[in-house]
Design a protein around this nucleic acid. Structure first.
Length: 298
DNA sequence: AAGCTTATCAACCGCTAGTGA
DNA sequence: CTCACTAGCGGTTGATAAGCT
């Protein structure tokens, strides 16, 4: 093979993989550049290394979805280290930095779409806040966004439903107003005054679940995860950024011992720090929390 | 069945750090 | 010191599969 041949790009073929595996067998996972210089493959050393690390290396969990435990690990470690995917991947056996990165960006993308869907341009500045970096996606957001749609089809129905309502809001101002009221009762509607003066108001006065209301579906998606202790931890961390109103509502959900961090929270100086996603959560999600499923049920 | 949307994954690119001459 | 080379990392993109209308 002439090493001056044109560089090959794109998907790897089986015979190329075999050559690469043979190289590693003989030389170990190093000297990547020599693969091309020796005329074995018309791939850059960089490309060879990547192929080995991401696909050919032994003990990789190729094609295996992230488990709930792995998701939690990524979420925790991302909060701790930031976007240090290579570092995070060392905590996950069989996962590459690329896997972790893809996992995270996939959830970020989903969150962005949800935010765009539920926060039309005409709404308040707060809800207009867009994700501008990976760090805008908090662990709790990622957790709430959950796994693939195959595993949790509710997220799909959520999108359809909220998307539908959004469209209706655009063509029908009255529908838009109702939509807004339902979506953001605490900061847009007259009802919010009642809530502020009486925190228990929320448990008595907020309309019951309506099947055609997209945001309720979104809330439902989160509910099954509330039965999980790790989710609760993440959720409670997030609630440290709740408004007073939201915090008082959260205390309705969690028993005092579980909501201690909520009660002992400190004001956040920078409202734009990560994890403020909870600010945008519809209070309706709390309506459905009557019987919490055990972790084994989700 | 066709077309569209979304999720997932593989691979590339640009950049930086480390190392040796 | 600096230059060249290599390895590694993080971000992005494009292809494809899967699900939905």
């Amino acid at each position: 093979m002439d090493k001056n041949e044109e560089l090959k790009k794109g998907p790897w073929k089986i015979d190329e993989d075999e050559v690469l595996i043979e190289h590693v067998r003989r030389n170990g996972p190093r000297d990547w550049s020599s693969i091309r210089s020796n005329g074995l493959l018309q791939r850059t050393g960089k490309s060879c290394r990547l192929r080995w690390v991401n696909k050919l290396r032994p003990n990789l969990k190729s094609g295996v979805k992230f488990s709930a435990e792995e998701e939690k690990t990524v979420i925790d470690l991302q909060a701790k280290f930031g976007n240090k995917w290579a570092k995070i991947s060392t905590y996950l056996q069989g996962r590459t930095d690329n896997d972790v990165k893809n996992f995270w960006s996939s959830r970020k993308k989903r969150l962005q779409r949800i935010q765009q869907t539920i926060a039309p341009k005409s709404n308040s500045q707060k809800r207009n806040k867009q994700i501008t970096s990976l760090h805008d996606v908090s662990p709790s957001e990622a957790s709430m966004l959950s796994s693939s749609r195959k595993e949790e089809p509710l997220s799909k129905s959520l999108l359809r439903s909220s998307s539908y309502n959004h469209k209706a809001a655009i063509v029908n101002p009255e529908a838009a107003l109702n939509f807004e009221r339902k979506m953001f009762p605490h900061d847009l509607c007259p009802m919010s005054t009642s809530i502020k003066s009486d925190p228990s108001f929320i448990s008595h006065q907020i309309p019951q679940f309506e099947p055609d209301f997209g945001m309720l579906l979104e809330g439902q998606e989160f509910i099954p995860r509330l039965g999980d202790s790790s989710f609760l931890d993440i959720f409670q961390q997030t609630t440290s950024e709740l408004t007073d109103l939201q915090r008082s509502n959260a205390s309705l959900i969690f028993p005092p011992e579980r909501s201690s961090r909520v009660a002992g929270y400190e004001e956040i100086d920078d409202p734009l720090t990560p994890d403020s996603f909870i600010d945008d959560l519809p209070l309706d999600i709390f309506d459905q929390i009557e019987s919490l499923p055990s972790p084994s049920q989700w």
